[in-house]
Design a protein around this nucleic acid. Structure first.
Length: 360
DNA sequence: CCCCGTACGCGTCACAAATA
DNA sequence: TATTTGTGACGCGTACGGGG
């Protein structure tokens, strides 16, 4: 990103965080924003909106530590105390959490944001604090789930159940997983085994394994570089060590028997020697030791960049999936706790009636 | 039908956090 | 300490619904 873009990034960040601050300080009206919903829910659960006059609300001091649940003690008029866990537990490093320090700083900076439209105003230290990253969704959700049994856990890496390609989880840990331009997943495992899966299929259906005959130890420094692309003849190709090409057939005429038996509509593959130049986007493996000329160095850099982009692309997809899962989880939690809150209010009313019966 | 606003998803960049 | 991973932000394209 250019310097200009970076500036824009910071400004946007400031603007959004300021909005969060303002929203959380005001009436907490319900909107589509998770952050705003969270702040509203937190107010509700602490009794500021629902039961402010009926019970004393105190936040247990032990709940302020990082990672421990925030337990709100609701003291009933009868002396009974009820432990209520926050909808969004404040000590959790929530995605939307805006710590007080940040709030103050952001508010201060935001005031000068319009007049001082330059990076010089925000020194690097402040910027770093403002831009300090929140922990990952997986971490947050797993911490939540450890506190609340009903909250599903986001599994670690390879064992994720739903967003990842359905067949990958059943494999021996692959070294590389790639997605083709048509949505198929290709995993290259340690021993040179290539496994192909269709995103649409569930379970192990659609799993294909190709074991390369030259799957021995690769030359030192060699990198398996995949790619799947639509070649001129409409077939799909990807490359494997040994300068061979796996080509997806349009028809199933050459399908190996073990593949054809699996499903009817499963694509078939054959291994060929590469016919022409590499399709766009394919960079073959190269040993670092063999790099001499500037051109080779440039190619290596390009290859590394392609690889990084590809990994980041997949990471971004996974991150978005986790984020959606996290938001869904929060929403379901909100629903559950709203019901719980309602019940508690009803219980409170009942107890209130019992404790102060009518005298006339 | 066209335009506009909104929502959503994707690829990419930058950078903090995690890991080797 | 270097590398990898995870995620916020941005820009872009697309789909969809509503209004003229």
């Amino acid at each position: 990103m250019s310097k200009c873009g970076r500036k824009k990034y910071i400004k946007t960040n400031l603007r959004q965080m300021t909005m969060e601050t303002i929203e959380s300080q005001q009436d907490g009206s319900v909107t589509d924003s998770v952050a705003e919903r969270e702040s509203a829910d937190m107010q509700t659960q602490t009794g500021q909106n629902s039961i402010p006059t009926l019970a004393q609300v105190s936040v247990a001091g032990s709940g302020t530590g990082r990672g421990s649940p925030a337990v709100t003690l609701v003291q009933l008029p009868s002396g009974q105390t009820v432990h209520v866990q926050g909808v969004i537990q404040t000590p959790q490093p929530s995605v939307i959490q805006s710590p007080q320090i940040q709030t103050v700083q952001v508010a201060t900076i935001a005031e000068t944001d319009e007049s001082a439209d330059s990076e010089g105003v925000i020194d690097s230290h402040k910027r770093r604090e403002i831009l300090s990253r929140r922990p990952s969704y997986r971490k947050i959700l797993n911490e939540l789930s450890s506190d609340v049994p009903g909250v599903p856990k986001i599994e670690e890496e390879k064992s994720e159940e739903e967003g990842t390609p359905p067949n990958i989880a059943t494999m021996a840990v692959p070294t590389s997983i790639y997605q083709t331009s048509t949505g198929q997943y290709i995993a290259i495992a340690q021993g040179g085994t290539i496994q192909i899966s269709n995103p649409g299929s569930d379970g192990v259906q659609g799993l294909q394994a190709l074991t390369m005959t030259n799957s021995g130890a690769p030359p030192p420094g060699a990198t398996i570089v995949q790619y799947a692309a639509q070649s001129a003849d409409g077939t799909q190709q990807f490359f494997v060590p040994g300068s061979q090409v796996v080509v997806q057939d349009e028809e199933t005429e050459l399908a190996p028997s073990h593949m054809a038996a699996a499903t009817g509509d499963m694509p078939t593959y054959q291994i060929r020697a590469p016919t022409t130049a590499l399709p766009q986007g394919v960079v073959m493996a190269a040993s670092p030791g063999s790099l001499h000329s500037p051109q080779q160095l440039a190619e290596e850099a390009t290859r590394k960049r392609e690889l990084r982009l590809m990994k980041n692309r997949e990471a971004a997809k996974e991150c978005r999936r986790r984020k959606k899962e996290y938001v869904k989880c929060l929403e379901s939690r909100v629903a559950v706790l709203e019901v719980q809150n309602k019940k508690l209010i009803e219980e409170l009313e009942t107890l209130k009636d019992i404790c102060s019966p009518k005298t006339d």
